[in-house]
Design a protein around this nucleic acid. Sequence first.
DNA 1: CTAATGTCTCTAGTAGCTATAGCTTCAAGA
DNA 2: TCTTGAAGCTATAGCTACTAGAGACATTAG
Lengths: 145, 145
Amino acid sequence: MLTIGKLAAETGVKVPTVRYYEQIGLLPPPERSSGNQRLYGRGARQRLAFIRHARELGFPLEAIRDLLSLSDRPDLPCSAADAIAKAQLGAVQARIARLKALEQELQRMVVQCAHGTIADCRVIEILGDHGQCAHDHDAIPVVVD
Amino acid sequence: MLTIGKLAAETGVKVPTVRYYEQIGLLPPPERSSGNQRLYGRGARQRLAFIRHARELGFPLEAIRDLLSLSDRPDLPCSAADAIAKAQLGAVQARIARLKALEQELQRMVVQCAHGTIADCRVIEILGDHGQCAHDHDAIPVVVD
DNA sequence: CTAATGTCTCTAGTAGCTATAGCTTCAAGA
DNA sequence: TCTTGAAGCTATAGCTACTAGAGACATTAG
């Protein structure tokens, strides 16, 4: 049996994150030691590794919840799992396309900067005037990593 | 003078978002009508358009705050603005690179799915076992748009 | 004048954690 | 055996950038 710290170290998930996953019902409440500390077995380890890997691939927690409940029913057809993965692939591809357009625009801005004063800085100027852009870029991507 | 609704419509920003920008100090508190409604002039319009455009390009609000205060000092050298733009460009490029690796991995998963049952679904199997992956993909990109 | 729409403030919620406070438990060394 | 430090516990609040809702007031079209 593993303590939460060992489980976290083995799966590469942080300790508070493990507790968070339990809280939102992604991980079942584990056994407790006599001193009320969480003790995890092999099943929990596998389940957490699954979650972690899916998160690395960008699946949202709700999708992971669905995938987990699917994986508990080996007899079902896998079309649902396939659909979730395809949706995630589509989302990733869309994000790549959008980010590439942004990259172009930013590169234009940076290249045109003559390193003079703010007064004639292309960066500031282009930001203030969307009309100078090559593309529409109406979707606003989130910048958190 | 524009009401908040007109300002929002003209700049493509939603009304609550305008109030939010005021609350966090990105927009200065505007004049008020006799009935306590916000009234905006040309300056506010330009400033909001600047913010909106920078958000479209993925700049975080803190970077925008810096860019705005730079744009108020036309005599300064524009190296600071340039640096902010370059940082954003770098962030976008890094995100693209990561997403491309994810795309590969997801595509492998989806292609290998034989559309049988969950029991032998490659999607579920690969998710459960990171060892089957071609690359490391340790950074977890956020999937919000 | 009335009805519809717009605006006001304030609070709470979203995703997916992360950080903090104040406490208890555990494992190893003297 | 005692002690000290690390690890664990719960609960709450904070992060980004908004978005949604409640309940009250303002404005405008007909």
